[in-house]
Design a protein around this nucleic acid. Structure first.
Length: 494
RNA sequence: GCGCCGCUAGCUCAAUUGGCAGAGCAUCCGGCUCUUAACCGGCAGGUUCGGGGUUCGAGUCCCUGGCGGCGCACCA
């Protein structure tokens, strides 16, 4: 261990030993506060300086500051992001507490029983008659003023980040409100929350590379799921009319400010609905999340305003690409070489196997997606890049699929689900062919899923929302690691 | 995977052209009964991310490895 850190720990261990020698348990089993620090603050707001309330409370928290003033000591407790001062004139303390107070360090968990008052300077405080050590800390806390700014340390030791950086608390409290709002909206609409497997024999429901693991007793490889989609639609086939799942999926791909290898998706499926219904649902879900997490539909993201006020723009992928390229006659039935040349003219990398649909999608991603700042439903994606989506009811080359783009980023992906088992089998076979041709992200053929489809499915509107990205938007943070408590990092090597 | 940037005391940061590795906070010792980044006095604390090289001399320059950030690539 580093010498100075060892010295700091050693100094605390000395106190630990001395406390034990005095018969004080530094790690007691239980404590019963009468109120949280927040409750004490709320119950005694605006006390005039010098007021003694006569109200006794028992509170607890982590000691985050200590100011000694001779026979008077000021301690500051922090609990769930709320601070409260302990005003500790030596004479007010009982004998054991007088012995204890000199052995307290910043970072310790401390309980206090005493009267609520406001000091002569007006600071709301508890004047303890009794102090209780609730948990001795052996390691120092980061700088009380500058906090912890080292990004790596903040992610590897998130507990420190949470102790000293109020913004970390803000983000994760907001995340919790977002999840609660999403569930509330879906529950009110009659959706049932379900949990489907994370260990999949065949990775399905998305085009992505999976993590592989192994089950010893079965002696078989399993995959961490890349999406819950196929299982959820099997539930619709089973007669559950509206289901949703909010949980982790895993993709063994590159990491970035928008990609963590494990991430949280909301997926919902409802019988009888099409993608127009799902757009309405999506708008309602995100607006509710914003209202309940922020209290407003007017956001600021990275210094730029965004309004979630509806209705949101709906534009086809083709018309967006036409706008961006200035080619009003571009369509899915033109010569593939012409579109390939267009890609090259715009610096978009292509592969010989790609058809017009894939090339148009590439143009969209290169030229359009990042420019869509206000919420926009981009609709009608090419069939060849949408193997699980229903063919459009009136346009031959596209599916009834949309992605929701906000601040240039994909937040949701949804479609009128493909429910025709024969079409699905043909789409899977095209994917299998693509895989054989070297596309590692192409889907596998899933007979269990086809069997469920052959049982008969009603019309289904399906939705997937990237919850981490939604939280990023609402919390106004630039990296997905800021909204995941313990983001994936390379293990430290020594 | 590629490119750029970063890594100095527990934390936050300095260190001129390559010339004695420093400060604030925290710790430790002493003082102080209304502080709140408390204050005053004093002591101590370093593998400058690891390894190698150039040089009389390396935190600084070169090579190499590690970890992180950002961008790109990959990617529903």
């Amino acid at each position: 261990m580093d010498s100075k850190l060892a010295e700091l720990v050693a100094a605390r261990r000395v106190k630990l030993d001395e406390l034990r020698a005095q018969g004080i348990d530094p790690y007691p089993v239980r404590f019963a506060p009468s109120a949280s620090l927040a409750e004490v603050r709320a119950a005694h707001a605006e006390l005039a300086p010098g007021t003694e309330t006569g109200v006794e409370v028992t509170v607890a928290g982590r000691l985050v500051a200590r100011r000694e003033h001779g026979k008077l000591t000021f301690l500051v407790l922090r609990e769930d992001g709320v601070d409260l001062q302990l005003f500790c004139p030596r004479g007010a303390l009982d004998q054991p507490s007088r012995a204890l107070i000199g052995h307290l360090d910043v970072g310790d968990w401390v309980g206090a029983r005493g009267e609520v008052l406001a000091t002569r300077k007006g600071e709301l405080s508890v004047r303890p008659a009794e102090l209780t050590l609730l948990g001795k800390g052996l390691r120092p806390l980061p700088d009380k003023w500058h906090g912890l700014t080292d990004t790596e340390a903040r992610f590897r030791q998130r507990e420190l980040d949470l102790v000293v950086n109020p913004d970390a608390r803000r983000v994760f409290a907001l995340r919790a409100r977002v999840l609660k709002a999403l569930r509330a909206e879906l529950d009110e609409r009659g959706f049932t929350e379900v949990e489907t497997p994370m260990l999949h024999p065949i990775p399905g429901g998305a085009a992505a590379r999976p993590f592989v693991t192994h089950h010893n007793t079965l002696d078989t490889d399993l995959y961490l799921r890349i999406a819950p989609e196929l299982y959820l639609k099997r539930l619709i086939a089973g007669g559950m009319p509206r289901v949703y799942e909010i949980n982790r999926s895993f993709r063994n791909e590159g990491m970035s400010t928008r990609h963590n290898p494990e991430f949280t998706m909301l997926e919902s499926y409802q019988a009888y609905a099409d993608y127009h219904d799902v757009m309405d649902l999506t708008e309602a879900l995100l607006q509710r999340a914003a209202r309940e997490a922020l209290g407003s539909l007017q956001l600021s993201y990275q210094g730029r305003e965004v309004s979630l006020q509806g209705p949101w723009r709906r534009a086809t992928l083709l018309e967006l690409v036409r706008e961006a390229t200035g080619l009003a006659d571009l369509d899915y039935d033109v010569e593939v070489d012409r579109v390939r040349a267009l890609c090259e003219a715009h610096g978009v990398r292509t592969e010989p196997s790609w058809g017009v649909g894939k090339l148009v999608l590439e143009l969209y991603e290169a030229l359009v997606e990042s420019t869509l700042w206000e919420p926009t439903f981009v609709i009608d994606y090419p069939v060849e890049v949408s193997p699980l989506a229903r063919r459009h009811r009136s346009a031959p080359h596209v599916t009834e699929r949309f992605e929701l783009i906000v601040t240039g980023r994909e937040l949701a992906n949804a479609f009128s689900e493909l429910t025709d088992p024969d079409d699905q089998r043909a789409r899977f076979e095209a994917q299998v062919a693509a895989r054989a041709a070297g596309d590692a992200e192409a889907m596998h053929l899933d007979e269990s899923y086809l069997a469920a489809m052959e049982l008969g499915m009603p019309p289904i509107g399906g939705l997937g929302v990237g919850v981490d990205r939604l939280v990023m938007l609402l919390a106004d943070v630039a990296s997905i690691r800021e909204v995941v408590l313990f983001p994936t990092l390379r293990p430290e090597r020594t």
